[in-house]
Amino acid sequence: MSKEEPIAKKPQGSRYTLRVWRQAGKDKAGGLQTYTVNGIIPNMSFLEMLDVLNEQLVKEGKEAIAFDSDCREGICGMCSLVIDGVAHGPHAGCTTCSVRMRDFPAGSTITIEPFRARAFPVIKDLVVDRSSFDQIIAAGGYVSVNTGAAPDANCIPVGKEAADKAMDAAACIGCGACVAACPNASASLFTAAKITQLAMLPQGQPERKKRVVAMVEEMDRLGFGDCSNHGECEAVCPKEIGINHIAQMRRDYLMATLAP
């Protein structure tokens, strides 16, 4: 009989140096603090890596780092983080929760900062208040007629191109990465997506003009910046929503104010 094979050794994992923004609360001073985390395997998600760090911190009797997450599968829009200067990290078309540690060379240093915008105040550490997005939606991002029960499919014909464009826009999960990535902290991509998803469909027509004016005005009132067409938003958007929606919003706003 052969001797029993030794059980495969638990993978050692790699070490990373993290520079993380720590801030005790809203309106408190904050700063980057450096931590080392061990035992990170390439298949871990970025947030799992932070979980490992937090366990380590709690064991050491230190306060865990606060960060947002919920579904951890790229659909809810709750996770955030600017990783090495890029919102949602280095992987295109991907939320922070779906970024894997294999995207970072073992032993490297990673800087983690919260989404930055006046309209997204930091609540604690890496958690920011994105309720200004809710206010933009509340200004008109809905259809206000009572629609009753679900109608028969195809009883209102919608052209293929319009449907595609509306669906592209409707993919927005409201994460706020577009604002975080924009050099001007503009919310144009989010607002445009929430406007065009309705503007392309028959159900959105009665309030189309009123909606675009109200939502653009609310976006401005909340203190987001203006759009300089850098297109960085499109590149970080986990749902790959294009700046063509911003052009659509500009057309709609122009028409709504020229011929109300």
């Binding site: 520079r19 090495d84 295109a92 900062e113 915008a117 001007n184 910046g225 960085e232």
Partner: peptide, 28 residues
């Protein structure tokens, strides 16, 4: 001046320590 200086600095009073470029379809 309004877009690129005034509104820009008002909209992000605290900047990033590290700024990157997402590449891909970005035109920044």
């Amino acid at each position: 001046i309004s877009v690129a200086l005034v509104d820009k600095s008002a909209a992000r009073p605290i900047g990033y320590e590290v700024t990157g470029n997402a590449g891909g379809r970005s035109r920044k």
